[in-house]
Design a protein around this nucleic acid. Sequence first.
DNA 1: CCCGTAATTAACCTTTTCATTAAATATCTG
DNA 2: CAGATATTTAATGAAAAGGTTAATTACGGG
Lengths: 142, 142
Amino acid sequence: MAVDKTRHRYIVNHMVKYSINSLDAVFSALGDGTRRAILARLAEGETRVTDLAAPYEMSLPAVSKHLRVLEAAGLVTKRKQGRVIYCSLQPQPLMGAADWIAFYRSFWERKFDALASYLDKTADTSPKPANADDQGKEQNDG
Amino acid sequence: MAVDKTRHRYIVNHMVKYSINSLDAVFSALGDGTRRAILARLAEGETRVTDLAAPYEMSLPAVSKHLRVLEAAGLVTKRKQGRVIYCSLQPQPLMGAADWIAFYRSFWERKFDALASYLDKTADTSPKPANADDQGKEQNDG
DNA sequence: CCCGTAATTAACCTTTTCATTAAATATCTG
DNA sequence: CAGATATTTAATGAAAAGGTTAATTACGGG
């Protein structure tokens, strides 16, 4: 049942094709720490607006506006149940953004390979990285 | 140490550690189509400011400002040779952005798996997949 | 029905962004 | 040096972003 990489690629292309979200909106939406934190929270699951707003010192309307931005970028959808509105992460546009970045992957890898040999050659004198392991996973930026 | 993953991972962490760029600046910089186009051009290689500006209708100072934004985000560096300034793509911050997005990968893959089964069931006949993965009451265990 | 809660909208303010044109700086060249 | 070229800085302005408080809409429950 696992979906292979090709399958994913297909799906991504499919979605990009049908996506109404512009990269402008998606990247701009990601350009605010509060909004990234909201997405991080939503990655844990559907959350109500009030709960989403609780951790912040800013007012509820401010959070509401951030949610509108995220919604406009297609990153968040809302579901109303009674007077409560539940927000969910909608990851497809993130995938579009990731795709854009991935387009340059071969370029950077060339760069990184070059840097790698540089580091190999200068191993004696180059500064050592203190904690090289889990950084990528701790990106949970608030 | 734990450089066990890949050489690249090591390098990326190294760079992240020494990077002065915030995700805010990087994602915001990417939130403008002109700037993304500039980066795309720079991915082909070092380019002078004037050449970079040529394809656009906007004035040279406008492009210059975009370059300043990209430079502030750490995405572009400049090299002066005589009166000409050559710009280069600096991909490390893009990597940081990609890492941020990748943090949610497991979440989306669950989504995409759901969509994949949808697509399997509906073949190619349906040209409107947009909300096929309506996540209303989806579980979260991540 | 009234009241409290959930959330948005309205009105407003300040700061930032994105663009412009004109002037300045720096450099190459005849 | 004079003049052309490459690029930035300055001054300016409109629009968007991000925040506030107050008012409003919409429900739910005694």
